[in-house]
Design a protein around this nucleic acid. Structure first.
Length: 111
DNA sequence: TGATTGACCAACT
DNA sequence: CAGTTGGCCAATC
């Protein structure tokens, strides 16, 4: 049975709706879900995204500083960076350039 | 089954 | 100004 009662499911739904070439933050997703304290859980959910039957663009989710904190969970030290640059997002020193310009806030876009 | 951790964020000291 | 703590939920030890 699909557990719709899971916090993770809701996170996946939001992450999957992130448009190409844009990024968001863990805290913003958590805040959209109604709990900014659950920002850590968003990262946890991404950890289980590999078990998801669908493709979760977890590389479009970074921390509040636009830093690729979870790059090491992609199986490589620069996999996340390559994915972001592949979408037109410039990354330098594990940090997204013009992050504010590429930021996609679910609380404002999805509402 | 209780305690700890975990891809975070913000407030307090 | 920098370090610590609290908060949230779920998974691992």
């Amino acid at each position: 049975m699909s557990d719709q009662s899971g916090f993770f499911q809701r996170v996946y739904e939001v992450v999957k709706q992130i448009p190409y070439g844009y990024v968001t933050s863990y805290g913003s997703i958590a805040e959209y879900l109604g709990s900014k304290g659950s920002a850590r859980m968003v990262g946890w959910a991404m950890n289980g995204s590999h078990n998801m039957p669908e493709n979760i663009p977890a590389h479009r989710v970074v921390n509040r500083n636009g830093m690729l904190t979870g790059k090491r969970h992609f199986g490589g030290p620069d996999v996340m960076k390559e994915l972001l640059e592949s979408e037109g997002i410039l990354v330098e020193n594990d940090q997204i350039i013009h992050f504010k310009k590429k930021f996609w806030n679910p609380a404002e876009k999805l509402r």
